[in-house]
Structures are given as C-alpha cells and as structure tokens.
Write a protein that binds this DNA or RNA. Structure first.
Length: 423
RNA sequence: GUGGGUGUAGCUCAGUUGGUUAGAGCGUCGGACUGUGGCUCCGAAGGUCGCGGGUUCGAGCCCCGUCACCCACCCCA
C-alpha cells in the first residue's frame, strides 16, 4: 500500500497544526471585531457554480479543477476558491434581501490541480471574507484594511508587505477598453507569445499577467484601463484610495494588476511579500464582484471580499522570524516510583485534570528518571512524586522544578497545593 | 503540460578511483546516580542504501528504466 499523502497534499503535524489554529483564532477574533459572521459551505459544489462564476476562460476552470461524476451522474467539483460558494449560498438562502447586506467569513481547504511547488499545494487552506449588498467604496476600504490588519496581527512586518490596488472598471467602461486592448494585442501579435495572442480573443486583459519579457515590454506600452474608466468607476476608485490614505494604509497603484478570475469589477487588490515564498509572492488578494450574484440568476447584488492563503502566510511569518506562541503541554507531571502506586497516580492525575490543571503521567512503566526527563520536555513546573513511602502515610512529594524545593503534601490537599503553587 | 535537481537510520547528512559486518550528529530507550530532570559520560535499539532490471568476481557508488519528492515555467492563495 502507498502510505504517502497524495501529491500536493500535506499532513499538518502538531507544530504546523498549532500554527494553523493560531491563524484561525486570530482571524476569528479580528474578523468578528469588524462585524463578520462565520459561514461554512460544502467542500464540493455542482460544477456550474464555478464554471459560471469564475469564468470558463480562466486557468482555474480550464485546467485546475477537480471535477468528477458522483454515483447519480452529477458533475461535482471540489471548490477551487471560496467566493463562488458563499455567493451561491447567499442566493440560495436569501441572505441578502433587497436593501440589506451581509458580512461573512469562511475558512477551509481549497483544491486546484496544479504542479506543486513552494507556496502552492493542490489542497491549500484559505480564510476569506465576503461583503454582500454593499456598493459603497468605504466597504472596499474596510475589506482591504482588514486584510492588512490580519497580516500585521500575525506578526508580518508592514515593511515586508506590499499592497497593490487597481480598478477593473465595470460594464459601462470595461467592454470598450477590452476592445482596445484586444486590438492592441492584434496589432503587436508578432512580438507577443502564442498564449497572449490567444488571449486577444478569450481574455485580453490577462495579457498583462504574462511574464514573458517580450510581452511585458509590449504590454508596458499598452493603454491602461485606469485612463479609460467611466466617471462612476473613477470616482469609486478615488474614494477607496482616499479612505486608505485616511487610515495611513500604504498602497501602490498597480494599473496592470488584473487577477485571474473573471468576476471582478472595479476594485481589485493583492498583498505581496518579498521574503520566504519562492516565486509565489501573493499571500492574499481579492476585489469587488458586483455582477456575480446576477450571473447566478439572483437579484443585482454588489459584493466584494478577499481570500488569504494559510500556507503562504505561514511561510511569510517564518521568513519574518515570527514564532507562534505555544501553550504549556503540562503544568504538573505525576511521577510513579514503582508499579505498586500506579492506581494512585492514575486517580490523582485525573483529579488534577478535573480541577482544570494541565497534568500528565506516564503510561509505559518507564523509569522514574525518564519520567523526569519527560516532565522536563513538557516544561512541567511541578512534579508530583508518588511512592510507596509517601503513600503509606497518605502523602505525596511535590517538587518545584525551577527551585527544586520539595515538600510533602497530604493526598487530600494535592489539588489545592498544586493550584496555589501554580498561581 | 514543460524543464532542472534530489532520493542512504525517526530527522539533518557523510560515504574516498565500485572492494569485507553502511557511518556521524540530533532524537528515542537504558545505565552511570539500586526513588529525582535540564550538563556530562557509557551503551542499545533503529537501515529492503526509493523501486526494478543490467554490467561486474563484487554495486550505496557505474548503465537503463520507473516511482516519489523538491524547485522553476504557466498561473494563483
């Protein structure tokens, strides 16, 4: 039998799992403070949720989805991202009746069939937020600020992050611009790579994403959407930036930032780090998607959100030298001198735990010496030594591992004695 | 899908031009200290040298194949 986890997946061993829980807790605390509520959606959806929402021409849909038929011949897909599911759920359950709004956050694994590399897995974790039913630019700023604050909260220094922002326009101004870019690509077809030539038809804006030096050079001269925004988009974008300025959030305008999902309109943004991520540098990103709900047949409902990647956040934290606080593995270790006292050790440990003390004992009949070593490894502050001598007079020995002081304590007083010494 | 790199103990790695029973450090367990930790010393357990073939008197080392992982391209979290 193949005892390896599938390609592109990883077990989260205790050290990593602890960091994971720390990120989750930090996000839950922070996001709640901003008024977001949790939502959990299925790990798989009917395939069209993604094909319609994310867009047929995107990399995600065209080559990265885990799609399969279930036993009822339904086409299902493991979610490659979170937004489509949340919007689908909001529509299904009418979470955003006309005139109202909802602020939600989610977390969990996403799945994309790609060749794994540093900072990229086939199963990877994201935490994200979605704001539904709010069109105003202050919501954009709130979401961006929240993303930045999260990274700050887990200890990634502002100096090692870059916040990029751009506007993708809307149905009023983007189609015309799209035509201009398409024409521009066709005019320069000779100098551009094959892929970009294809993009002229399928998704011209994505030519800005190409890293081929020749294409980068040509696209650097291409007209920018920023200069073709309609009045409304332009005003929206300006207000978002003004709000960021008010809070002193540093950002860079990135007029060629387009991002890989079709549903974005107006504001898009991305947080990149300079260290630790190999060639991947985005640790979080998102944008506005005012047309998505309608794409699913729902009422016009503006929306926006972000997603951030756990694995990449952890890599960035590591690069920044941030350590995750580790809880005590044991306050008290109850040591067994010989087998005659095993039952007493077991019941005393249980009593301590019932009293809320983090207590540990040896289950393997190891020597007293090795029990002490174990106590040391667990950073236990106290060791209760249970031996036949003490037990004969109804007592145990309590050793303070730091001061090395030892004292006799009556068994009935053990819990109180431990508590008072632990403060 | 394409390219490059690496596979030797639980972990990190040595392993000379192919040559006897494949090593070290860390970790684990035991002992020195017959009921007491962090230091030190001693000892033990632990290995299909990724897998399969081939060359050879002899392969961890050479050849072929295969698998896995890593990194990069594409793109994204």
């Amino acid at each position: 039998m193949n005892v390896r986890a599938p390609k592109g997946t990883a077990d989260m061993l205790p050290d990593v799992a602890r960091a994971w829980e720390y990120l989750t807790r930090t996000a839950q605390d922070l996001f709640s403070r901003y008024g977001y509520e949790p939502i959990y959606t299925p790990l798989f959806e009917n395939t069209e949720v993604f094909t319609r929402g994310i867009g047929e021409a995107t990399d995600i849909v065209s080559k990265e989805m885990y799609t399969f038929l279930d036993k009822g011949d339904r086409s299902l897909t493991l979610r490659p991202e979170g937004t489509a599911s949340v919007v689908r759920a909001a529509l299904e359950h009418s979470l955003v009746p006309q005139g109202s709004s909802a602020k939600l956050y989610y977390s969990g694994p996403m799945f994309r069939y790609e060749r794994p590399q540093k900072g990229r897995m086939r199963q990877f974790w994201q935490i994200g937020v979605e704001v539904l039913g709010v069109a105003g630019p202050s919501a954009d700023a709130e979401v961006i600020v929240l993303l930045v604050r999260f990274f700050e909260a887990v200890g990634i220094p502002a100096a090692s992050m870059r916040l990029l922002v751009n506007s993708m326009g809307d149905e009023a101004c983007r189609p015309a611009y799209r035509e201009r870019i398409s024409a521009y690509i066709r005019d320069h077809g000779e100098q551009l790579c094959e892929e970009c030539n294809r993009r002229a038809v399928t998704n011209p804006l994505r030519a800005f994403d190409c890293k081929n030096p020749a294409c980068v050079a040509v696209m650097a001269e291409a007209p920018l959407l920023r200069d073709s925004l309609c009045e409304e988009c332009s005003a929206h974008y300006s207000t978002v930036k003004a709000h960021l300025d008010r809070l002193g959030i540093a950002y860079e305008e990135a007029p060629r930032l387009v991002r890989g999902l079709d549903y974005y309109t107006r504001t898009v943004f991305e947080v990149q780090v300079t260290e630790g991520l190999g060639s991947q540098n985005a640790i979080g990103g998102g944008g506005r998607y005012d047309r998505l709900m309608q794409e699913y047949g729902g009422p016009p409902t503006p929306g926006l959100g972000f997603a951030l990647g756990f694995e990449r956040t952890l890599l960035a934290m590591e690069a920044a030298g941030v350590s995750v606080p580790a809880p005590a593995r044991a306050d008290v270790y109850v040591a067994r001198v010989d087998d005659s006292v095993s039952e007493s050790v077991f019941t005393m440990t249980a009593a301590l735990r019932d009293a809320g003390v983090v207590a540990e004992l040896d289950h393997q009949a190891r020597s007293l010496k090795s029990q002490f070593k174990q106590a040391d490894r667990l950073a236990a502050r106290l060791v209760v030594i249970v031996g036949p001598d003490e037990l004969a007079v109804g007592e145990v020995t309590l050793r303070d591992m730091t001061s090395k002081d030892e004292s006799r304590v009556a068994i009935g007083e053990l819990v109180n004695a431990v508590r008072s010494r632990l403060g």
